[in-house]
Design a protein around this nucleic acid. Sequence first.
DNA 1: TCAACTTTGTGCAAGCGTTCACAAGCGGTA
DNA 2: TACCGCTTGTGAACGCTTGCACAAAGTTGA
Lengths: 256, 256
Amino acid sequence: MAAQRGEGDGVVTRPGVAGAEAPADVRERARAIPEAAVARLAVYLRVLSGMVEQGVTTISSEELAGAAGVNSAKLRKDLSYIGSYGTRGVGYDVEVLVGHIERILGLTRKHSVAVVGIGNLGHALANYGGFPSRGFPVGALFDVDPDLTGVPVGGIPVNHIDDITTVCAEREVSIGVIATPPQAAQAVCDRLVSAGVQCILNFAPVVLQVPDYVEVRKVDLAVEMQILSFHVARRADEAAGDVVNGIGVDGVVIRP
Amino acid sequence: MAAQRGEGDGVVTRPGVAGAEAPADVRERARAIPEAAVARLAVYLRVLSGMVEQGVTTISSEELAGAAGVNSAKLRKDLSYIGSYGTRGVGYDVEVLVGHIERILGLTRKHSVAVVGIGNLGHALANYGGFPSRGFPVGALFDVDPDLTGVPVGGIPVNHIDDITTVCAEREVSIGVIATPPQAAQAVCDRLVSAGVQCILNFAPVVLQVPDYVEVRKVDLAVEMQILSFHVARRADEAAGDVVNGIGVDGVVIRP
DNA sequence: TCAACTTTGTGCAAGCGTTCACAAGCGGTA
DNA sequence: TACCGCTTGTGAACGCTTGCACAAAGTTGA
Ligand SMILES: NC(=O)c1ccc[n+]([C@@H]2O[C@H](COP(=O)([O-])OP(=O)(O)OC[C@H]3O[C@@H](n4cnc5c(N)ncnc54)[C@H](O)[C@@H]3O)[C@@H](O)[C@H]2O)c1
Ligand SMILES: NC(=O)c1ccc[n+]([C@@H]2O[C@H](COP(=O)([O-])OP(=O)(O)OC[C@H]3O[C@@H](n4cnc5c(N)ncnc54)[C@H](O)[C@@H]3O)[C@@H](O)[C@H]2O)c1
């Protein structure tokens, strides 16, 4: 399960075969893009979309890198994974770049999203306008609570969880979002998988067990905060330590 | 900004000095823990807390790794960053491990959280019981909307954003959560920073500019979905490609 | 047309993080 | 006590990621 990812990523591009047909080239290239670069490409896309709205037509790696908060060399390398679409001495055509990133990220088709668990968080997600506008229309909502079934949230009526298989099939759901209490998460996950959903975004603080072919990403806000907490603690320790060791005692506060 | 991190992390443990005082040892060790390991430690902590509740007293690296969804060697290495608290031939004492991870993550003190932007998402966050129970009491809520000021959400009355400096100081806020529309995010961030907040969790889809000493973590759900989308697309391409290339045509579907 | 200037795309080396594999250490047993 | 089996802790190798630095390739202006 963990092996699966390393396996897939490491093999890279079947070197010799290359050459002729463009589609194969694109395909092979897509396979070789490091996960970390994919995440950044999505960020570049967001920044570039903003640029388009501001009427910017051309942008240099330096400018885009600044706006995206990364090093320009890294940005160029990331873009090089998807092809050579820049013009030396000029920069990148914003719309062209948007098109290519969208293609690589598979955004040429819309991905219908199902939210399961229409509580506090589920309501916020269902009402959020940011998903449809970025290629992810919310296509279905599910909850176990019979009082909720039929009630429209964000314009979509809630279905009962028991209908998950048929509804997901009908509406061609490709991404499932789990926003149920942790106790229910694994069961919901299993039902999503049986319904044919292969991509899951999980907000419940539990580690989901899924078959190899299912991709799970988790968002655990408490973990995020704990990482922040670690940095605070480390910084406090550092400061304390430096004072104790007599380093930096001269009134120069380290990271004020 | 980037240089700063490498500097701090690389130096590692001033080897000779070791021995005597435990606190220095702990401090030096904390400095050397890789970011990726910190994120996983937070996950181990969550799993271990569950174990405590189930009455489990001892756990092997293999079991814990399974429950946390990682490789057992990685888990042991992660734990080794914080010290040697296992017993060979037996495993780890769950409570002891919980204590040490909490200490390393700085969870021995509570971190008061301020949520800014009490809209859809802000309401969900304010009502969420998962933060206080994991060491992050919500201490303040802010919004620009005058109709909201004074209204209690999740038991805490909303303050006006203009009072952010005084209120944050009073309540010793150490983590700021930004849940405003993207246009307002940078301004809110600046105000949080002026108010002395050094850790920020950002839900708005914008890249925040902050001074070096401020730690920002972002949660962009559309980016998460786009990463999932990439994998779907890649998988589709792979399947198509393999058929085209005549590889795997023998009816064996790759990742069905 | 040519030279000066700008910016991309990438080879390469260094740094991190992951994984393997096994010696060291502990508890239990005879 | 001496041995056995189990599990930790970690050195070392590997592979991914980052950042540097520069040739290649384009534009601009004379
Ligand atoms: N609210 C937040 O801000 C927040 C933040 C981070 C993580 N989370 C996590 O997100 C999840 C949801 O949080 P919440 O605050 O919205 O909880 P909630 O209790 O408000 O909502 C949970 C919803 O899930 C439904 N549900 C329960 N079992 C179900 C099942 N088997 N199938 C379908 N629906 C089911 C419930 O009826 C309820 O409507 C939790 O796991 C929580 O830990 C929430
Ligand atoms: N709702 C979601 O599920 C969701 C998901 C992902 C990301 N986000 C992001 O989170 C943010 C909030 O989303 P939302 O759906 O809650 O939006 P919302 O419009 O419901 O709420 C935004 C709130 O911020 C307040 N606000 C505006 N300007 C402010 C300022 N300068 N200072 C303080 N408060 C201010 C508004 O009064 C409002 O109450 C957005 O950036 C959105 O992109 C939301």
